[in-house]
Simulated assay, not measured.
Amino acid sequence: MPTFLELQDDAALLSFEHQLHLSERVGEHNWHVDLAQPRFDFAGENPLVCDRVHLLGSAAPGPRSWLWSWANPFGYRAEVLEIALRAKEFGERHGIRELSDAEIPFDALPGSPQEPAQVASLMMEAAKAATGHWSGYQGPTGGGTRAGFLLDHPELSLPAPTSPRTMRVLQQGMMELRLQDHRRACGSYAVNRGLEVSGDDGPMWITGPDFRIGVEFNEQNLMTKMTATLGAPS
């Protein structure tokens, strides 16, 4: 069964690619959410309206804790809570208290993060891996609190994988993201992206429709080398 930290690695690279795609789609923007509708608006150079909005929860500096949306006394609509409840069920099934407990103190999370944005990111990544919903957004809601949302919209779906984008995600993700196990992160990304994965102990081979990427790791499962071959696999 996965741990909370392993879920971070499982989510990291595919979540990163979805964030790249979202950023490219909406560009510079402002946002507004109405959970009574529900509706999430990106306003700016490339407007986008999402009418399927899932509130995961919020990280607040006052109590220094994350509160899952299903535990919030405000009482949100069922469709707004659907994915958070699915993450809760996953946590109960696998013994991951960060997903199943109603409120999580900042200090109970790995590394004892102090910033609400960092806490929201950790909780969102775990929920993404647990539920298979990958397009996320977090933002300020006042008083230093950060809320985390997952969004569904056809234009937020990823296009078919290409060699340049896959290489960028792997290379940039390895450099910029806090990954514990590069081999696990690469393998999870490839499987969730619908790519073929081979190689258990030595180099990992990630094969797409017109490319093959080889990734080598050291004994600590940290990436040491990456190569790409273009052209349809034989």
Rank of each mutant, 00 (worst) to 15 (best):
M1G: 12
M1D: 11
L5V: 12
L5M: 09
H18Q: 10
Q19N: 12
E28Q: 14
E28S: 15
E28I: 08
H29T: 11
H29I: 08
N30S: 13
W31D: 14
V33P: 01
Q37V: 12
P38N: 01
R39K: 14
R39E: 14
F40G: 06
A43L: 14
C50H: 07
D51A: 06
D51R: 15
R52A: 13
V53A: 02
H54N: 09
G57P: 07
S58K: 14
S58E: 12
G62L: 12
R64L: 12
R64T: 06
R64W: 01
W66S: 03
W68H: 15
W70I: 05
A71N: 04
A71S: 13
A71H: 02
P73Y: 01
F74A: 14
Y76S: 00
R77W: 04
R77A: 15
A78L: 10
V80C: 08
E82F: 05
R86L: 14
R86H: 09
G91F: 05
E92H: 03
E92M: 07
R93Y: 03
R93C: 05
R97M: 05
L99P: 10
L99S: 05
D101K: 11
A102P: 05
E103M: 09
F106C: 03
P110D: 09
S112P: 01
P113C: 09
Q114M: 07
Q114S: 12
A117Y: 05
M124G: 12
K128S: 15
A130G: 08
T131F: 04
G132L: 07
S135K: 06
S135M: 10
G136F: 07
G136L: 07
Q138T: 11
Q138L: 10
G142I: 01
G143Q: 09
R146L: 10
F149K: 06
D152E: 15
E155G: 00
A160Y: 07
R165K: 14
R165S: 12
R165P: 04
R165L: 13
M167C: 13
Q172V: 13
E176P: 00
R178S: 14
R178N: 13
Q180R: 14
D181G: 05
R183M: 11
R184W: 04
A185K: 10
A185F: 03
S188G: 14
Y189E: 04
G194I: 04
L195F: 09
V197Y: 02
S198V: 00
G199K: 08
D200P: 00
D201G: 09
G202R: 12
P203N: 11
P203G: 13
M204N: 00
M204E: 00
W205L: 15
G208Y: 07
I213Q: 05
G214D: 02
G214I: 01
G214Q: 13
E216N: 10
N218M: 00
N221F: 09
K225M: 02
T227M: 12
G231S: 08
